Simulated scan of single mutants.
Amino acid sequence: MIRVLLADDEAMMRAGIAAILATDAGIEVVAEVGDGRAAVDAAHRYRPDVALLDIRMPVLDGLAAAQRIRLEVPATVVAMLTTFGEDDYVARALGGGANGFLLKSGDPRELLAGVHAVAGGAAYLSPSVTHRVIARLGRDRLARDSAARDRVAALTDRERDVLALLGAGLSNAQIARRLHLVEGTVKAHVSTILLRLDARNRVQAAIVAHEAGLAADG
């Protein structure tokens, strides 16, 4: 069972997201709150597997709440809830340790898939968010793509295989099955990849994979 903390300051939106999550027998919403500070408190109290945080919230915004949860409750994985027009916030959140970015107005199946993905240790970006974030980060797209290819060139062939699947949003277990490896070996490869790419988390590594044209089909 995946235990989820949901934080959104709009009661109607919060209720709608909770209703979608309730349709999945493998997900349990253990707390619903309306601001970032309450989200941090709830993370300490309930120790959820996943914290779904709206980016814009009162008292403490989602970006600040995500950083605190990642530092203070490291076992909880953070995914951000975003809307169109918040690309700059998403770009900033990449450095805050968030493992996923889910579009509020997206397909409900995408929301459920995203929760399962981040709970399983994978990075997850809604497809439409991925393209917009890359465009936002890549004002000089050719230069960024070239830099990404240079960074990827430092990886071994096997590490590039792992990065390609990581970029497609696969978890360590899924990558292990796809490449016929032991999961512990994949975990070691991922750690090395993050170090060599100077990436803070799997989402940043996934962005590099996309920019380098390396991301595989899921």
Rank of each mutant, 00 (worst) to 15 (best):
G36Y: 03
A11S: 12
D61F: 04
T82L: 04
G26Y: 06
V4Q: 07
A153V: 01
A91D: 06
T130S: 14
V33T: 06
K187C: 11
G62S: 10
R136C: 04
L94T: 11
D24K: 04
M80K: 09
V208A: 12
A64D: 12
D198W: 00
V162N: 11
M80T: 00
G97K: 06
D157N: 12
V33C: 09
E211Q: 14
D54C: 08
A7D: 11
I207R: 05
D49L: 04
V73W: 01
G34C: 10
A65C: 06
H116A: 12
V40C: 08
K104D: 05
S171L: 04
A147T: 11
H189E: 15
A216W: 00
R158G: 04
A38G: 03
E10I: 07
A168K: 04
H180D: 15
A42V: 05
A164Y: 04
V78A: 03
D157K: 13
E32I: 07
V73T: 09
A18I: 03
E10N: 15
P74H: 07
S105D: 15
L181W: 12
H131A: 13
R202A: 10
A199M: 10
R160T: 05
N99Q: 15
R3E: 13
D87L: 14
L111G: 06
R151S: 13
A117W: 09
Q204H: 09
L52C: 01
A22E: 14
D9S: 06
N172E: 14
I2M: 05
A123M: 10
L197Q: 03
L21F: 06
A98P: 00
D88I: 11
E110I: 06
L195A: 15
A18M: 02
S191R: 15
A11T: 09
E110Y: 02
A122E: 00
A209N: 06
V186M: 09
R200M: 09
G218P: 15
I193Q: 09
A123W: 03
A66F: 02
V77F: 01
